[in-house]
């Protein structure tokens, strides 16, 4: 494995996820504006649709990856002491994974209930 943390990969990932997040958010806003679901049953049915479910999962993963690259950049720029930087990076990873698992769990539950 390379000794260096990634430069190009992280940069491309940040841009690609930004694109997807932008498009998905626009679609989401469109739905909420022009054809909003009425009541929980309609919400659930919407997210239970395999296409929408997968698109939403990809959205969640995109946000997590995008946030990871962005926060990593900020910490690399501003936090110089190695111990503190590693601790903060680890906390960010844990926080992001927790958020991701929680969001995914909601999506899976929607399909089960």
């Amino acid at each position: 494995m390379s000794r260096k943390a990634s430069g190009l990969k992280a940069w491309v990932l940040q841009r690609a996820t930004a694109l997807y997040i932008g498009l998905f958010t626009l679609a989401l806003l469109g739905v909420l504006l022009f054809d909003p679901p009425h009541g929980y049953a309609q919400w659930r049915d919407g997210f239970a649709d395999p296409l929408i479910g997968i698109a939403t999962l990809v959205y969640i993963v995109s946000i997590l990856l995008h946030a990871w690259v962005g926060v990593r950049d900020v910490l690399i720029d501003y936090v110089r002491p190695l111990g503190l930087r590693v601790t903060l990076l680890a906390l960010v990873v844990l926080g992001l994974v927790a958020c991701g698992l929680w969001a995914s769990q909601s999506l899976i539950l929607v399909r089960l209930v």
Partner: peptide, 12 residues
């Protein structure tokens, strides 16, 4: 030589 998070990619 420019790969890695620092040399080039610190540019925001």
């Amino acid at each position: 030589a420019l790969e890695g998070p620092y040399r080039l990619f610190r540019c925001h």
